[in-house]
């Protein structure tokens, strides 16, 4: 599977690239689901010995064991497999706290994973020049309800129902890096009860 192609969009929508091995004293690779493929692809052209200085944090989500053994075969210095992004955050914060100048960060997978991990990295003072991203897998969106502020993960339809307040929200392209989420706004605010049938827009 090649990396995802997105329609041209508004300027707050993030743009993703293709991971490439860079010189560095240490490397941190964080991926979820099909994001593992981005790491595996990069590994094919990576200089020898890169993974002896690498920590991989991987959240398989629905891919189960598909990629775990292949990632392990890269022989990273440290390898973590976590059940969810949320479960991995305290570990990630600790890893970033210990980071030295020269750390290279690679983020791959869904927008929710990339956005949230990037927020942690930037908050820890990692310069954006040391960060690379590559989108792979599901285009489901992490959404913030502008009304109640609750986050709904892995949204695939538009409109969708807020997991917190229950309002029916339409999916905007407006994206906040700080929240690592797109904005959801009540779709029937001007005509309560008139909610269109949800359409699957993101897979």
């Amino acid at each position: 599977m090649t990396n995802s192609v997105f329609e041209p969009s508004i300027k707050s929508r993030p743009v993703y690239g293709t991971l490439a091995a860079r010189p560095g004293k240490a490397h941190l690779m964080i991926a979820d689901a099909e994001g593992a493929e981005a790491i595996l692809d990069m590994a094919q052209t990576a200089p020898e010995g890169l993974f002896t200085k690498t920590q991989i944090m991987f959240i398989p989500k629905a891919t189960g064991d598909t990629y775990v053994r292949q990632l392990q075969a890269l022989k990273p210095a440290q390898f973590y497999v976590g059940p969810s992004y949320n479960a991995s955050v305290s570990r990630l914060q600790r890893v970033l706290k210990d980071a030295h100048m020269g750390l290279q960060i690679y983020l791959a997978g869904t927008e929710g994973l990339i956005g949230q991990a990037m927020f942690e990295a930037v908050s820890a003072g990692i310069p954006h020049t040391a960060l690379q991203t590559e989108h792979r897998g599901s285009t489901a969106r992490r959404m913030q309800c502008v009304h109640c502020k609750g986050i709904t993960e892995d949204v695939t339809t538009d409109p969708f129902q807020c997991a917190h307040c229950g309002l029916h929200l339409f999916v905007r392209d407006h994206y906040s890096r700080r929240i690592a989420a797109f904005q959801g706004v009540r779709i029937d605010a001007e005509d309560p009860g008139n909610v269109p049938i949800p359409v699957e827009r993101f897979k």
Binding site: I10, K11, S12, Q144, V146, H174, Y175, S176, Q183
Partner: peptide, 17 residues
């Protein structure tokens, strides 16, 4: 427009819509 959503954005990002 929402400050809470747009805080931290640059000039092009907050005008994106």
């Amino acid at each position: 427009w929402s400050l809470d959503f747009d805080i931290g954005m640059n000039f092009f990002e907050w005008h994106a819509p």
